[in-house]
Write a protein that binds this DNA or RNA. Structure first.
Length: 229
DNA sequence: CCATTAATTTAGT
DNA sequence: ACTAAATTAATGG
């Protein structure tokens, strides 16, 4: 747990914003980060707690979700390695506006948020990359907004599957990391509808489901379903 | 069209 | 074996 996988200087997976920093900066960050290992299901950050750090997903997959008054959560995003959790807390009230949990065993590189704020102010290149990340994030949420507000269950499920296939796993085949309940929290439909819609897609030969292995068999049909809404 | 309810089956520890 | 999760079918807003 205390072992470091790599140093920041040579980290092959570090976020692009760190490419704008020099060797001394990397050494400085090295002194101010910790590596954390989370098992599937473990909470990485809790909504409402102090946002004292930015969490970089070194490996694994993480869900970011809102805790609502009801027992059901709302999943905002499912994020692959290479992404950062906590950027919306930069220069704001220092409290996490959402929770995050591992949906696969994950390694997180946690960096003091003040370092991010300092580099953002002092280094234009670093700031550009942070803005780039934040823009990717808002664009993603435009798509999510359209999906959840304007599409019917088939379209919403198609969007979820396309995101997992194209953005998270970059593969036509992947082990579905989300439970039916989590898929329902992601697509804003009942868990019963999740099974019904997935069965329909499998019946129609658009996807294949063998246990937890999910295969996209007909990506064109899936994209059509996404567009048709 | 889809959530809800309830009954039943399956999976995970 | 026991509990939680998933599936299936029926009902109704």
């Amino acid at each position: 747990m205390t072992e470091r996988l790599v140093s920041c200087v040579s980290c092959p997976k570090r976020s692009s914003c760190f490419n704008e920093l020099d060797r001394a900066d990397h050494r400085f960050i090295e002194e101010n980060r910790v590596e954390l290992h989370f098992s599937k299901g473990e909470v990485i950050c809790k909504q409402g707690s102090f946002a004292s750090n930015i969490m970089f997903i070194y490996s694994g997959v993480v869900k970011v979700y809102l805790e609502t008054d009801s027992k059901e959560h709302i999943i905002l995003s499912v994020m692959p390695s290479g992404k950062m959790v906590g950027l919306p807390s930069l220069f704001t009230d220092r409290v996490f506006p959402y929770s995050a949990a591992a949906v696969e065993d994950s390694v997180i590189c946690s960096v003091d948020i003040r370092i991010f704020e300092d580099f953002t102010k002092s280094n234009g290149g670093f700031a550009s990359e942070i803005i780039h990340s934040l823009n990717d994030c808002t664009l993603h949420f435009f798509n999510r907004f359209v999906s959840v507000t304007s599409k019917q269950v088939n379209g919403r499920m198609a969007d979820a599957l396309l995101h997992l296939s194209e953005k998270v796993y970059v593969s036509r085949e992947f082990i579905m990391p989300l439970s039916r309940a989590e898929l329902s929290a992601l697509t804003a439909m009942s868990p019963e509808s999740v099974t019904r819609v997935l069965n329909k897609l499998a019946e129609d030969g658009v996807i294949g489901m063998n246990g937890k292995l999910c295969s996209i068999l007909d990506i064109d049909r899936l994209k059509k379903i996404s567009q048709a809404g």
